[in-house]
């Protein structure tokens, strides 16, 4: 009798060892953490310190940041809009402007580099050089680039725009070449056989085919830049961070917390808008696209 078709069955499976592995990794982490802590008592003190800090320094938030500055004199009519002359509003708008300009400049610079970096469009050598450029821009966070450009061009939004542009090129470039490499192979093969030039392929095949991903990433990058724009002011590169930095230096923590709450709310709104806009560009929403007013207003407001 032939026994070729009989397969030996055993209950042994490597997957049973995964929980053991996780426990081992966790214990290992605890050992490393213990090595870095010299006094566990400080962790328990932290709660008491936090309570004092909260009651004496931080609360209540100082909402004078939303009142108009004494100089320059606010001339906005009607008076209800005079918060647009406040520090928080000016700082926030400046942060938005920095994020917008940096995203647009960064996109313009990163698109050609990411087209060069995509391995399905170029030879390995070219793509590695382009990837090296992108990786070197990305290797420092925008905060470090901020310090660098503040030294070069001085304190202010110019340094912020330059710093964020450089970081955007590095980060967005990586996202974009990955999106381009993720596109289907056959349009590229078809255009290669037809004999289209590299530039034609890039502009007429690659960009239309991956446009949804690219636009979605640009919007994500704007949102990201906006969040980081609030931090970048701490090193003097403009935006609302500059006002937070000043407040921290004068130990006005109640003012700091007011700024932070404002940032939190605006970031939430920006995130919401960004998610909604990006949902227009992600795949297969169906035949009807969401309308623009659906992005800005909740459904119950539109439906009457």
């Amino acid at each position: 009798m032939k026994n070729d078709d009989v397969v030996e069955v055993s209950l042994f499976d490597w997957r049973y060892f995964y929980p053991v592995l996780f426990i081992f990794i966790f214990l290992f982490t605890i050992i490393i953490f213990n090595g870095m802590i010299n006094d566990w008592g400080r962790l328990s003190n932290g709660i008491g310190v936090f309570r004092t800090f909260l009651s004496e320094d931080v609360l209540p938030p100082d909402w004078t940041v939303l009142e108009p500055l004494t100089y320059p004199v606010c001339t906005v009519e009607p008076r209800i809009l005079d918060f647009t002359c406040s520090r928080a509003w000016i700082g926030m708008i400046e942060t938005l402007k920095i994020a917008f300009v940096a995203t647009v400049f960064g996109t313009i610079l990163s698109l050609p580099i990411s087209l060069l970096a995509a391995r399905n469009l170029n030879t390995t050598e070219v793509s590695y050089i382009a990837r090296f450029v992108l990786a070197s821009f990305r290797s420092f966070p925008s905060l470090i680039w901020g310090i660098f450009f503040v030294i070069l061009v001085g304190i202010g939004p110019t340094a912020g725009v330059l710093a964020m542009t450089v970081y955007t090129v590095g980060y967005l470039g990586k996202l974009q070449y990955e999106a381009i490499e993720g596109m289907s192979k056959s349009p590229l093969e078809a255009s290669e056989v037809m004999g289209l030039t590299k530039l034609e392929t890039a502009f007429q095949v690659v960009l239309p085919e991956s446009a949804n991903d690219l636009i979605s990433q640009i919007i994500f990058m704007f949102e990201y830049n906006f969040r980081h724009g609030t931090v970048i002011g701490l090193v003097g590169a403009g935006g609302i961070g500059l006002y937070i930095d000043t407040a921290i230096k004068y130990l006005e923590y109640d003012r700091v917390i007011a700024y932070l709450i404002i940032i939190f709310i605006v970031v939430l709104i920006m995130d919401f808008i960004s998610i909604k806009i990006r949902s227009l560009f992600t795949e297969e929403v169906g035949h009807s696209r969401p309308k623009w007013r659906e992005v800005f207003f909740p459904a119950w407001m539109i439906k009457r």
Binding site: S186, P187, L188, E189, A190, S191, V205, E209
Partner: peptide
Amino acid sequence: PQDLGLVKH
């Protein structure tokens, strides 16, 4: 090609 190679968007 078998999967046509069209620019879908």
